Amino acid sequence: MTVSDRYRSSWDGYWEQSSGEAGEPFWDADPALTARRDLDHLTPYADHTLPIADLGCGNGTQTRFLATRFSAAVGVDLSAAAVAHARRADPDGVATYEQLNLADPAQADALHDRLGDTNVYMRAVLHQSDPEDRPAVAATVARLVGAHGRALVLEPTGAAKEVIAAIAAQPGGPSLKLRRVKEHDLRPGEVAEGEVAALLRETGLTLLAEGTTALVMSETHPDGTAVELPARWFVAGRP
């Protein structure tokens, strides 16, 4: 299975017209506010001697942090331009980066062959995936985890759309970061209540823990506080 041409071209266009600097994208918050906090959910279940794969890594901001907590980290993204940004931002090679179509089982199997069982970090990827691709993306998570890895999957809830709509309706209209999302047709989707859990279970994974959280964005409110999107987190693996 391959993703739609619209989806691929939208992300390529976005990253090709980006500087690659950390914090430029709407969602690209400091790892101290994102991956570092998120790992509190994964750490009790994960074997940190295994590598970790950052699915939908973008410019690699979170991947580079994850590399400090696991034996190795690889960031993967559909967009070649995103992968190029990530590599440029990591001249010391703290992590590695690869172009990968998460909906392609052959590519997922090839990555697993290279890494072995791995932990997975996937932040707000499913809601951006076309609905018909989501089962294949979840299956890639299961392929990478294998028998011994653990996956942390985080997705915004339906209430996140209300937060984004309120930001767009502020005096002066949407910010530059939000306008760029719209200009490149990066359509924030909505993952229905229970959909993430169902997708993971359908791959044969077991839900080990789940809960509510907030996804911190690089965007800020007029008072300078970070925008936070209501979300849920899930840790999955094979018992």
Rank of each mutant, 00 (worst) to 15 (best):
G204Q: 08
S218L: 06
A214Q: 11
H221Q: 07
R201F: 02
E210F: 02
L208F: 14
G211Y: 08
A209P: 06
G204L: 10
L205G: 13
E195Y: 04
M217W: 03
G204C: 10
T213R: 05
D223C: 10
T225K: 15
D223T: 08
V227D: 07
G224W: 05
A209L: 10
T203S: 09
R201N: 00
L205M: 14
V196D: 00
G194S: 00
E195S: 05
T213L: 02
T225Q: 15
L208G: 03
G204V: 06
H221P: 03
T213E: 10
L205S: 13
T212G: 01
V216T: 14
A214M: 06
L207S: 07
H221N: 13
A198M: 07
T213M: 07
S218Q: 15
T213W: 04
L205T: 11
A226S: 11
L207K: 08
G194T: 01
L199V: 08
S218D: 10
T212E: 13
D223L: 11
E195I: 03
T206G: 08
E219Q: 15
A226P: 04
L208W: 13
E202C: 01
T220M: 06
E195K: 04
E195C: 00
H221M: 09
L205C: 14
H221R: 13
A198Y: 03
A226V: 04
D223G: 08
A197K: 04
V196S: 02
G194H: 01
A197P: 01
G204I: 07
E219G: 09
L199Y: 05
T206K: 09
G211V: 05
G211D: 05
T220S: 13
E210Y: 01
T203M: 08
T203D: 14
A226Q: 09
M217N: 06
G211N: 12
V227C: 14
T213P: 00
A214I: 05
T213N: 02
A197T: 03
V227A: 07
T213C: 06
A214Y: 07
M217T: 14
T220E: 14
E219H: 15
M217V: 00
P222H: 12
L199I: 03
E202N: 11
L199T: 06
M217F: 06
L199Q: 01
R201W: 01
E210K: 07
E210T: 14
T213I: 00
V196K: 02
G194K: 00
